[in-house]
Structure formats: C-alpha cells, structure tokens
C-alpha cells in the first residue's frame, strides 16, 4: 500500500483520482452502482445561478477515440442544488468540490456566496472559465488573463475554501491565463477543458451537433492534456490537476510525470462510472510494483534528457 494522499491548497485528499465536472452528474445518479466514497473527490456538474435548460439535441456524437458534446451547461441552478444536493453531500465521506459557471462576475459570485453559506461539507470550488458550448459560459474570462485574475480575486475575497480555476486549451497561451488565476489567488489550476471540435454527417451535410461546434473529450485529447499540464506545471508554482482522456492507471502516472498533483476522470465515466474506483486500486498497485512509497514522488518526475 503506497501513500496516495495528496494535498492541494491545504486540503488533503485520500487519493489523486477525482471525477471531472459534467461527467458524473452530481454524484447521486450513480451512487447505487459505484462506491463514490472511494474517489479522491467529486467535482459537481457546473452550477449556474438560474437553472439552465441546455442546448437542443443532438448534443453528443462519437468521434475517433472520443466524443463531442454540446450540453450547454444544463443544470438545476444553485437554489435547487442547495436544497437537494447539499444534504446528500453531507452523507458522503469523499470530498466534494462545486464547479461554478457564469456569464458575469456577479453570477459566479452569487453562486459561490449561496453555497458558501450552507456548504459545510463542500471543500472548494472549481471555477469554469472554459466552457466552449455556451455563448456566455465564462469563456470570455477564460481567454483573457486579466479577466481571469479579476474574477479569481473577487471570489478569493469571499471564500477561504479551495479555489481551483479550470482552463481551456482553446487559447493562444494557457500559461498566461494560469498566471492570471494564480495572481488572483487561485490555489490550483485544472486543465484541460474540452477542445473545440466539429463533425459533419456527409449524407445530410449537417453538423452532427445542433450547435454545430462542440467540445472534444476522451483519449483523443490526452496528448493535448499532457502537454498543457506540463506547460502549466513548469510555468506556475501552484498545483495542477490534470484532465483529458484518462482511462487507466498508466494515464494517471503519465499526467503525474507531466507535473499534475491530481487528476480528473472525465469521458471514461460514461462507459463505466466505476472506472475511477478501479483506477485508484491500479495506481496503488503500480506504486507498489514500481517501488514508490509515496505516489507524490511521481509528480513532475519527468526525465528531461535533452
């Protein structure tokens, strides 16, 4: 048994395997199938101030080694979230991080403040400034370093809890945005959100998604995730949580070597919502058979030969 515990912004997690926002619902939908308490953390589906219907169908399409989605931040809104989910989270042993999306600084702030008042068992917030599928889903923050900094700063003043900023790869320089988040007081960066993509049905000559563009996820984007995590961990001194195409313990190790402190499993949950729990056991076995007493030895242990 290796030590899998990781610490991010003063919060200790039992292991580095989290589930990514939007790929695990609020956790309750799968709790009959999966022992969610074994997960390092659950990141909730994005919460906005008002409920959101989401985008018209078709919303998803399979692509080589991945999928495109354009859900459009469909969610129950912060009030219903507090009413229905906070009591459920109080019954969990795993740590819950609330993902917040918004179309204005005020919206992010209003959601955070509402959760802050009641969420004793909420360990932190992941700020979504990178949803590619809605016109005003925070992306205008996520492509601008100064706006990311201002938003992070505003939220930092209102919470002592863990503050993670989730970044998009659909920018010219992700480290520039990350620096803004760090200057604003973020405890950690999570990356990457989905990569903008498109797929066309050649018989109807229409896009396979109603919104035309969507976000690409799954193993297809793993090398993009690895590259961005490595860039980020080299450029900023706060922990990076790696996301993008993780389906196995080997993928987790790869992200750690690239510089991640923890990881989030995304699309793989759709095939098997229990994959995270399986991967935790596999990571443990990997550490044992490779002589790592502490999994954190792997973080940033990339060998630079050239």
């Amino acid at each position: 048994m290796a030590n899998l515990k990781v610490s991010i912004g003063g919060v200790e997690f039992n292991n580095p395997v989290f589930v990514a926002s939007g790929t695990f619902g609020y956790g309750n939908d799968v709790s009959e199938l999966v022992d969610v308490n074994q997960l390092g953390a659950i990141i909730t589906k994005s919460i906005t101030f008002h409920p959101r219907e989401g985008n018209p169908p078709p919303r998803i399409i399979e692509t080589p080694s991945g999928m495109l989605n354009s859900i459009g931040l469909a969610n129950i809104g912060v009030d219903q979230f507090i009413k229905e989910m906070i009591p459920y989270y109080a019954s969990l042993e795993t740590k819950v991080i609330v993902n917040i999306a918004g179309s204005s600084m005020e919206e992010y702030l209003n959601v955070l403040e509402k959760v802050e008042k009641v969420g004793e068992n909420i360990y932190g917030y992941e700020i979504n400034v990178s949803c590619p599928n809605v016109e005003k889903g925070g992306m205008e923050f996520g492509v601008n370093s100064l706006m990311t900094r201002n938003l992070t700063e505003l939220l930092r003043k209102r919470t002592e809890k863990l503050l993670i900023v989730k970044l998009s790869p659909n920018v010219t320089d992700i480290t520039d945005i990350a620096k803004g988040a760090k200057e604003g007081g973020a405890d950690a960066i999570s990356a990457i959100n989905t990569v903008i993509g498109m797929s066309i049905d050649i018989s109807s000559r229409k896009s396979n998604l109603a919104t035309k563009f969507g976000g690409l996820s799954g193993p297809a984007i793993k090398p993009i995730g690895i590259a961005n995590v490595h860039k980020l961990s080299s450029a900023i001194q706060i922990p990076v949580i790696g996301i993008g195409g993780i389906t196995s313990a080997e993928d987790v190790v790869e992200y750690l070597l690239a510089g991640a402190t923890a990881v989030q499993i995304g699309t793989a949950n759709f095939r098997d919502p229990g994959i995270g729990v399986k991967i935790i056991a596999e990571v443990d076995a990997y550490c044992d058979s490779n002589g790592y007493y502490d999994m954190s030895e792997l973080t940033g242990a990339l060998v630079n030969d050239s």
């Binding site: 939007g22 790929t23 695990f24 619902g25 919303r59 998803i60 859900i71 469909a74 949950n269 759709f270």
Partner: peptide, 16 residues
C-alpha cells in the same frame, strides 16, 4: 437517441 452513459450523467440524450 444517441447516448453516452444511459445513467443521466452525460445529459446527452434529450428530447424537446
């Protein structure tokens, strides 16, 4: 419908 999970977590298979 197209569907990713069948569990309600992907929110992909909606009808209006």
């Amino acid at each position: 419908s197209y569907m990713a999970c069948g569990l309600g977590i992907c929110q992909g298979c909606v009808v209006e």
